[in-house]
Simulated assay, not measured.
Amino acid sequence: MSGLVATFFGAGHLRPASGTWASAITVALAVAAYQAGWALAVPAGFVLATLAGFWAVPRYLARAGGEDPSEVVIDEVAGQLLALCFTIIPLWRHGVDLLAAWPGWVAPFLLFRLFDIWKPWLVGRADRRGDATGVMLDDLWAGLFAGVAAMGLAGLYHGVVEPWLG
C-alpha cells in the first residue's frame, strides 16, 4: 500500500520527468473536481496527500532504499495541491469558472515546477535533509512559494495591469 501511495498509484513510473507528470495529473484532477462542483476537494486532497505522504514515504524509502527515488511523487501531489489552493479557493468563493480563469491553475503549476526544480532557500534546505521528511517538506515549501507567487501575480495583474489597460 505504501508503494501505491508513494508513487501516486503508479504515476511516479511515468518517464521522463515523473514529478512533472504527477503535477500535471494532479492539476487535471483538481480542475475536473472544481468544474464538477467539488472545489473543496482540492484543499481536502492537499491534507489527505500530505498525511498519506508522511505515512508512505518513510515506509517506501525503508524498503526501496535511496534518499529520494524519482518514482516517489506523492510529495509533488501534495505540493501542487497546496499551490492550487491559493487560487482555486478564491475563485470558488467568487463563483468564477476555472476554465475561463485559466491562469488560476496554469500559474500555480508552472511556479510549483519552477520552485521544485530550482529549490531556492527553504526548498533546498529541506531537500538537503536527505530523509523522508525532507522528501515531503521540499515540495510543501515549493507549493507554498508557488501559491504565494501566483497570488502576487494575480494581484499585480488585477490591481495594476488590468486597470491600466482600461
Rank of each mutant, 00 (worst) to 15 (best):
P16A: 00
P16G: 03
P16M: 07
A17M: 08
A17V: 05
A17G: 02
T20H: 06
T20P: 13
W21G: 12
A22L: 14
A22N: 13
A22W: 11
S23R: 04
A24S: 15
T26Y: 05
A28E: 05
L29T: 03
L29E: 02
A30W: 12
A32V: 12
G37V: 07
G37W: 09
W38P: 03
W38G: 14
A41P: 05
P43V: 05
A44H: 04
G45F: 09
V47R: 11
L48S: 11
L48E: 09
A52E: 10
G53L: 12
F54N: 10
F54D: 01
V57Q: 04
Y60N: 01
R63T: 00
G65A: 00
G66T: 11
P69W: 05
P69M: 09
V72S: 08
D75Q: 13
E76Y: 09
E76V: 07
E76S: 15
A78F: 04
L81S: 02
L81K: 04
L81T: 00
L82K: 09
A83Y: 10
P90Y: 08
G95I: 09
G95R: 10
G95N: 10
L99R: 14
A100W: 06
W102V: 00
W102E: 10
W102I: 01
W102M: 00
P103C: 08
G104T: 11
A107L: 15
L110D: 08
L111V: 08
F112Y: 14
R113P: 05
L114T: 05
D116R: 04
P120R: 01
W121A: 09
